[in-house]
């Protein structure tokens, strides 16, 4: 009948969460960009057999920007990739992307929701400054509510501090 059990604990409890290490962190090659096949079948195939967005040798196959804790700065490591996507959008006016900002689980859910928005907005700004059109980009936040990696450890957290670039139709 009652699924909630109230347990009285007198005195100050040191309620330490156990820090389990979880090896089952998702591989970055799966996840947000798993919506299309490795052969790029969802999009037109070029002469190489790969669509440029899916060619593993193309920078456009990289779709995620990762962040430091509580930061929305796009590190220099990711700028060439973001700019490459912006140039692709510039050259393909019909292409559209959704930028999904995500955060790790630590801290306030509402602040993380706003932080995820800032991350997505930050990527959008770089893209529009690099030739993409405003109308091609929608920046949204999932906050900490849709983690890609589970677990309370830095490996999972760094995996979840992320903006994903998703092309519509993939």
């Amino acid at each position: 009948m009652k699924t909630i059990a109230g347990i009285l604990i007198i005195g100050l409890l040191s309620a330490c969460a156990s820090q389990t290490t979880q090896p089952d962190v998702e591989d970055r090659s799966t996840g947000a960009d798993s919506g299309y096949g490795a052969d790029g079948s969802a999009l037109d195939s070029g002469g190489t057999g790969f669509h440029p967005l899916n060619d593993p040798n193309s920078i456009l196959s990289q779709r995620s920007v990762f962040y430091d804790f509580d930061s929305y700065t796009v590190n220099h490591d990711y700028r060439p990739m973001v700019i490459a996507h912006a140039q692709y959008l510039r050259d393909n006016p019909n292409a559209q992307v959704i930028l999904q900002g995500n955060t790790d689980e630590r801290g306030s859910r509402e602040y993380n929701l706003a932080l995820g928005q800032r991350r997505a907005d930050g990527v959008k700004n770089i893209m529009t400054l690099s030739g993409a059109r405003e109308s091609q980009i929608e920046a949204v936040s999932l906050g900490e509510e849709k983690p890609r990696a589970y677990g309370s450890n830095e490996s999972a957290w760094s995996e979840n501090r992320r903006t994903d670039i998703l092309y519509r139709g993939e």
Binding site: T3, I4, A5, G6, G11, L12, A17, S18, T20
Partner: peptide, 24 residues
């Protein structure tokens, strides 16, 4: 708060002396 990897509720007295936990 979180104990053993699970989310639970806790109530702490204003003076920090007393705590109570609610879990499922």
């Amino acid at each position: 708060t979180e104990i053993g990897g699970r989310g639970i509720l806790s109530a702490v007295s204003r003076d920090g002396q007393t705590r109570q936990h609610l879990s499922v």
